[in-house]
Nucleic acid binder design. Sequence first.
DNA 1: TATCGTCGAATTGTGGAACAATCTACCACG
DNA 2: CGTGGTAGATTGTTCCACAATTCGACGATA
Lengths: 201, 201
Amino acid sequence: MILDGSLEPGTRLRETEFSTRLGIARHTFRAAAQILINEGLLRRSPNRGVQLTVLDADDILDIFRLREALEIEATRLVVIAGTDLADAELAVERFNELDDTASWRTVVDLDMDFHRAIIDATGSERISRAYAGVQSEILLCMAQLRPHYDRPAEVAAEHRELLEALQASDPDRVEKLFRRHLGDASENLTNALQAREEVTA
Amino acid sequence: MILDGSLEPGTRLRETEFSTRLGIARHTFRAAAQILINEGLLRRSPNRGVQLTVLDADDILDIFRLREALEIEATRLVVIAGTDLADAELAVERFNELDDTASWRTVVDLDMDFHRAIIDATGSERISRAYAGVQSEILLCMAQLRPHYDRPAEVAAEHRELLEALQASDPDRVEKLFRRHLGDASENLTNALQAREEVTA
DNA sequence: TATCGTCGAATTGTGGAACAATCTACCACG
DNA sequence: CGTGGTAGATTGTTCCACAATTCGACGATA
């Protein structure tokens, strides 16, 4: 429901209401909510329950600060170890096969798959876990903002470029390209946020 | 109890036993355990409850992989923004005032304070949250391993060096020094782990 | 005797009801 | 018009119950 966009940002999730609606006990709802809180999708204030996170421009910047920290280090580890990037390769290829009519969600998922493949290639359980958290939040951004997305072919080409730099084991170029790629994405989302604010204002 | 070392690594925390021992309800215990699971201090396996995390050499490496990702990016952000590092400065000074009789826990806490101060100086809520997780795990390492620790004066001197590089805005030197500092700490813990394994073997 | 299957106790996962503490909204009063 | 209070709603926690699952012991069989 949260990622469908069928819940307004900031909506308060009352325990009795949602537990009955979902057909589960209040305890179970609370436990489930705690998981989503850890992923950043919900917020809890004492005695006031949980509500759907509303993201502002600072949040987007912050999400990408963490994302950069993790991805840049991941690429460094991958380059140093000379890790095989078959999964990332696969994600790029599947991206290439999409045509311009591909659903927005499909594009987002494949984009994420590519980046996740690089993170997972490090073999670091904890970096992967931390990254899972930011990915949830990015998905939340996406769900709330529905930003402009480039045509699949363009994103695929960019990913291809990133991948080639990785495989060429050129650390400086990798870092530069990834920072730019992530910076662009961040800017893209920030613009979408600003656009929405102008509508609702 | 976990960080006191009064609980053996791997101990299974039965819900009824611990909830009565702590004077709380089972549900409350489960909620509390969930928080510690998120911090990495406990593990849950389905239908088998939670048990105290046991860390092996791979875990220590992995903890420091994530730690490096966060700290290196934090130092980069601090250098770029020219952020004031008053809190880190303070931590170094308080470190300097310790004599060799200082309790092990005091030394650990001040060490952590220094690193946390740099993380917090970025102003990134999410990087700080992620770092809080690794710090818990490091504290767990420390509690379980009680590794060798340098004399306070030496650690203070090393921190002073790190801080001066940060304030001199020399990114390459900062990165090199921090990677070495963290690498040493990681090695230190790994050795302590190996030493323990030889005892228990 | 060793291996395997089965049964039973213990433990977790979930549900439901209750109650105190806290928050919220509304209303009466100055 | 502002203030204070009161009643209802909501959260945080407790207790009890029970199905599902796991773990261990016991006994049957080769």
